[in-house]
């Protein structure tokens, strides 16, 4: 028996919005410690890694490890039927071919149940090595989304350049060029408003705008985003998911001319 109950059901709705444009389907690996999902987009340019710890749920039970292959378009349709203040429970029998979503209104007056067929997915799992990154940049997630959106007007790529002075985002195309520099902030009232740059070595890498913009669908999950970069390795874009876990997007760089 697998059962995971989340009083703050809106978090699950936001997680779905954050992955459904990038992935058509994905396996949810449910284990005693929590739920993991790792999947590449169709083009294998990016990878999504989602981690929801058991401690973050209001009730969590997983007697045996189960892998639930889900069509994310279908799952998204179902989660759209949940109100933002609904309590969401996911449950499945040990060797079931369906998963059930239960939505309870806060006053328990309305209870909706949706059963969805599971899929057998044969997805390639990649081993993500532990990496010490040269540059770790924390910035407000809304600011990052704004920068990606604004620079998308200029070209297909965004160059992210991190030095000890701060971080620079640039794009170039037919209409001209754009450069946005963010300096490390001094003291701020709220920690989430800060721009913090932790740099060992300066790094400059080029990434696809299209994917960066898809990652920013996770913005409602967290006021802050963390970018980790090292030369010639994928960028990591991480959003915390409340007290439950995190979503990490890995994006392979564009290399050469």
């Amino acid at each position: 028996m697998f059962e995971a109950r989340l009083v703050q059901g809106s978090l699950l709705k936001k997680v779905m919005e954050a992955i459904k444009d990038l992935l058509n389907e994905a396996s949810f690996d449910c284990a005693h410690s929590g739920i993991l999902l790792q999947a590449m987009d169709n083009s294998h340019v990016s990878l999504v890694s989602l981690n929801l710890r058991k401690e973050g749920f209001d009730k969590y039970r997983c007697d045996r490890n189960i892998v639930m292959g889900m069509n994310l378009t279908s799952m998204s349709k179902i989660l759209k039927c949940a109100s933002n203040d609904d309590i969401i429970t996911m449950k499945a029998q040990d060797s079931a071919d369906t998963v059930t979503f239960v939505f309870e209104s806060p006053n328990q007056e309305k209870v909706s149940e949706y059963e969805m067929k599971l899929m057998n997915l044969d997805q390639d799992q990649l081993g993500i090595p532990e990496t010490e990154y040269c540059c770790i940049i924390k910035l407000p997630s809304g600011e990052f989304a704004r920068i990606c959106r604004d620079l998308s007007q200029f070209g297909e790529s965004i160059v992210i350049s991190c030095t000890k002075e701060g971080v620079k985002f640039s794009a170039a195309g037919d209409i001209g060029t754009a450069n946005i520099k963010l300096a490390q902030t001094g003291t701020v009232d709220k920690e989430e408003d800060a721009v913090i740059v932790d740099m060992q070595e300066p790094v400059t890498l080029t990434f696809s705008c299209k994917y960066l913009n898809m990652f920013t669908k996770a913005t409602p999950l967290s006021p802050q985003v963390c970018l980790s970069m090292s030369p010639d390795v994928p960028l990591v874009v991480e959003y915390k998911i409340g007290e439950i876990g995190h979503i990490r997007y890995y994006l392979a760089p564009r290399i050469g001319d």
Partner: peptide, 14 residues
């Protein structure tokens, strides 16, 4: 604007 690399170039099979 460069060659788009793929994830397999960096991360091997688990």
């Amino acid at each position: 604007q460069g060659t788009q690399m793929r994830m397999e170039s960096f991360f091997g099979a688990a």
